[in-house]
Amino acid sequence: MKKTLLAVMLAACATTAFAEPTAVLKVKGVLTNSACTPELSNSGVVDYGTIHLSELSDSAVNQLGQKTIDLTITCDAETKVSWNLVDDRVDSRAGVTVANGSATNGSISDANQTYGVGKTADDVAIGNYSLFVKVSNVVADGKSADTIYMLGNNNVWSATADGITEGQNNRDITVAASGSLEPVGFTTATFPLVTSLAIQDTKTLAITDDTDLNGQVTISLRYL
């Protein structure tokens, strides 16, 4: 027992005697020639066509349904890359709830998860829409892939079933191998995106002339 105690004491003394009062900071990174390009189908336009006010409710939020558009990211070499977006019409967000606004058919109302579609001539916000990933149909290099996301820059990736996006560059989205939470490199990945649109009741809108919907988001890439 004494021998064991002595060994521990010696180890402790040795550690204390030779501890260095220093800390090491390392700078890391990767220089690469890889480049990736995002592209949207239909020239990036989601068209809800002509909406007749006479067919809309004058007292309740009007749910105008879903439209689909594909986001394809193409890289000239296998690259780990995510994407995020910013709402360019955030000041016109009406704050109405969007039905069937996610891949799990949930209702969406959070300010960060809905996007504006412009204002009337009298400065009334027309409505807003959600934008989500149809996670069951995401493909990377010809194979089905899981969709994962990271909030802010915390470097913690999580799985997503609802495919929700967020504006203000707050949610990065990319792909992982099935069952994994680790981003994988790819040369081509396609994310089917779905918009779900809701607009205010016609009494609130008080529109007398033709009024265009004017939603717009900017999608950016982040190399991982």
Rank of each mutant, 00 (worst) to 15 (best):
T147N: 08
T97R: 12
A177M: 08
K80W: 02
D47V: 00
F18C: 06
L181S: 14
T208I: 10
W157C: 12
I219M: 02
R222M: 03
M1W: 04
A11C: 15
L71I: 01
G95P: 09
A145H: 03
D162S: 15
T165S: 14
N137K: 14
E20S: 14
V98T: 11
K134Q: 14
V184Y: 00
A60E: 13
L197P: 02
N100L: 10
T187G: 12
A14E: 02
V138W: 00
T50K: 07
E182N: 12
S107Q: 14
K119F: 00
S34M: 02
K203E: 11
F186V: 05
V86G: 07
D76K: 10
E55C: 07
N100C: 06
D58C: 10
G29W: 01
N105R: 11
I51G: 09
V45C: 06
Q168N: 15
L205C: 14
L131Q: 11
L224W: 01
L221S: 06
A35H: 08
V194L: 03
D146P: 10
Y129K: 10
L10E: 05
N153L: 09
V217A: 13
S178V: 11
A177V: 06
V90Y: 12
N154R: 08
L193Q: 04
I173A: 01
G118W: 00
N42P: 01
P183Y: 01
A17R: 00
V217T: 15
Y129V: 09
G116N: 05
L5E: 06
G179D: 07
A177H: 06
V46T: 09
V45L: 15
G49M: 04
L25A: 14
V156Y: 04
Y223S: 07
Q216L: 15
M9C: 15
Q168M: 10
E20M: 09
T160A: 09
G106M: 08
T79F: 03
V24N: 15
K2G: 11
T211K: 06
A77I: 01
T147F: 01
N155L: 13
R89M: 13
T195C: 06
Y48K: 07
V156R: 10
K143Q: 15
A23L: 00
S41T: 14
F186G: 07
G118Y: 00
A60V: 11
D122W: 05
V86R: 13
I148N: 12
T22V: 15
T79E: 04
A161F: 00
S41L: 03
A77P: 00
N33E: 13
N112R: 11
S41C: 03
T190H: 06
Q168A: 15
Q168E: 15
A12E: 03
S144W: 00
A206Q: 08
E55P: 09
P38V: 06
I207E: 12
K3G: 13
G179T: 08
I126H: 11
I173C: 00
R171Y: 00
F18S: 14
D201C: 07
V184E: 01
D87Q: 12
T4R: 05
R89L: 05
G49W: 01
V124H: 09
S180I: 01
S180F: 02
D141G: 07
S109E: 10
G215I: 06
A94Q: 08
K143D: 13
E55W: 07
K67G: 04
S178N: 15
